[in-house]
Design a binder for these strands. Structure first.
Lengths: 211, 211
DNA sequence: GCGTGTGAACCTCTTCACAGCG
DNA sequence: CGCTGTGAAGAGGTTCACACGC
């Protein structure tokens, strides 16, 4: 069972389905069809059914999927029924904005702590989250167990911060830095690359200009 | 020539190559090999060569690719040699942070203007960029031609903002909102979904726990 | 009838392996 | 000899179409 290879794309779409289902639950919709979800998420209905069928038979023929039941199942699959706490490394502009904008609407995530190397920033409280020194990182992570770290440090400090995180046992990192970062096996590192998204949009503009 | 279908993945990687090449140029490295780029970007060297070969024969057998020449070619392909100006819709926490953190290191993008609906925010200047009223959006976009809009509005206002952008002729949008947004044909809309990235990391933690 | 679950066809992307050129 | 460019093989993901259950 653990060896099921499920593609990242499928998991990403499960996250989208979960978001739609939360909306539907709020609206009081009892059932959704694969067509519903597919239109809301911009993919084919067959893909929705395939994604869900990987993990079980959640649907009822003729009526579709029961909203709250399917949502619970997806959250169990993703692990978001009991989501890991999130820590923010770097309490600069980006880090502060992430803390201040909170994680509402993201399905249960919450900020546990933030860390910075600047003595002037350490000790501050941002949106109810205390900024701690990096020396305290180890204690927080080891006490907490699974943690997701968001990396929002200035250019050039990314690798240092990653090494730090890895050494204290953090194996899930979401980086907002541009630099490619080296990680050992077993650590999962994802990037939010605004710059690359802009490049993709620029390219699409250029293609349009040509046709 | 315009009809060449190039995958998004390839374009995304070109963006990564460009970033590596800018680094290499700063370091004074005259040539890079596909192996160089592949290791730096975490993919296979064959993929690098395939990506580049789509657009021409930029390499020299035996030595590799000339750094500044290849970078120029990639920037010409992406259109980033003359990147479109960027506007920010929504000058709240996220919008302000984007403006304040600037676009340095992203390869030439610059903020042109920002817009908000809150009279208290309009007129302020954030990181040298004036916050204008949405009424002024049309003038700015039509005067400028191609523009990339970053959407950083509060939950629930996304669709409105998109409709606004589309109606004034903006066809490239990068959304930081969670809501799925409807767009007409011809408009390119991309999402930065921190929430989904967190879900992917949570899932990877869960998988690790099982094995 | 409606909508799921699923094998099969289809398509796209990646990796392999090697010819060919500097 | 080293590294590119590239056909061929392989892997992975998506779409199709239909049998089955409600």
């Amino acid at each position: 069972m653990p060896g099921k290879k499920v593609s990242e794309k499928t998991i990403r779409r499960l996250s989208h389905y979960a978001r739609c289902l939360r909306e539907a639950r709020i609206d009081g919709t009892p059932f959704v069809t694969s067509k519903h979800l597919s239109e809301r998420c911009g993919i084919s209905s067959a893909a929705v059914r395939k994604d869900l069928a990987v993990f079980g038979e959640f649907g009822k023929q003729g009526s579709g999927y029961e909203v709250s039941g399917l949502l619970e199942n997806i959250e169990r699959i993703l692990g978001t029924c009991d989501p890991p706490p999130v820590i923010v490394i770097g309490a600069g502009i980006i880090g502060s904005a992430l803390l201040e904008s909170g994680l509402n609407g993201t399905g249960g995530y919450r900020y546990l702590a933030s860390f910075d190397s600047d003595p002037k920033t350490i000790g501050k409280t941002i949106a109810g989250v205390r900024v701690q020194s990096l020396a305290e990182l180890r204690d927080v992570v080891s006490e907490q167990g699974d943690v997701i770290a968001i990396l929002a440090v200035p250019p050039g400090e990314g690798q240092n911060a990653v090494d730090n995180l890895v050494s204290v046992g953090c194996i899930s990192i979401l980086s907002f830095t541009l630099e490619p970062l080296d990680i050992p096996d077993g650590v999962v590192l994802r990037y939010v690359e605004v710059s690359t998204e802009l490049d993709l949009l620029t390219y699409s503009l250029k293609c349009r200009d040509r046709s």
